[in-house]
């Protein structure tokens, strides 16, 4: 048996449409749930925070020190070869992808630190440029001769 007749004989139309519907709706539901995940994060963190805090202590523990890359200059030197390949301006995603490829540890954190330090300067439209002068001469500290 061939053609439409063969499809009808094994209920093929229903099989294909039900299958497609299940797969697509499954991914739609998953997509919706993950789009809402960030709303649960503060809640979970609050619960975790409450559990972590001992009940009988009066003073609140000091907030954890922000995690900073060990040395931003050292990190910048790791990123320099990538910047050289990306050119004068580049999207942050490209920098992140390349850093990941080269197994540079904690690229999220380091890129964020670069942005805070102004080494990565936004150019608009998600494009950034690398400003090595910020490394050479930080605003508070005058540069020392090598």
């Amino acid at each position: 048996m061939y053609g439409i007749e063969a499809i009808n004989a094994v209920n093929g139309w229903a099989m294909a449409s039900v299958g497609a519907l299940i797969v697509f709706s499954g991914l739609v539901i998953l997509s919706f749930v993950i789009s809402q995940l960030h709303k649960f994060v503060p809640l979970l963190e609050k619960i975790n925070g409450e559990k972590a805090a001992p009940k009988d202590t009066i003073s609140t523990p000091p907030p954890p020190a922000p995690i900073k890359p060990p040395d931003i200059r050292e990190q910048a030197s790791l990123f320099q070869p990538i910047i050289d390949t990306l050119g004068a301006s580049f999207p942050l995603s490209a920098l992140y992808t390349q850093a990941n490829k080269q197994n540079i540890p904690h690229p999220h954190l380091t890129i964020s630190a670069f942005r805070d330090a102004g080494i990565l300067a936004p150019q608009g439209d998600g494009i950034f440029s690398w400003d090595p002068h910020k490394l050479i001469a930080p605003p508070q500290k005058p540069a020392e001769p090598a």
Binding site: M15, G19, L27, V28, S31
Partner: peptide
């Protein structure tokens, strides 16, 4: 960007179109 997941779902439609094609060519389900 969770909405990109829908593209992963849409690309699976090729599977079900081909299912019909294979059935039409006489393959068992």
């Amino acid at each position: 960007r969770p909405k990109l997941m829908l593209l992963g779902g849409a690309a699976q439609m090729g599977i079900f179109f081909t299912l019909l094609g294979a059935l039409a060519l006489g393959f068992l389900p």
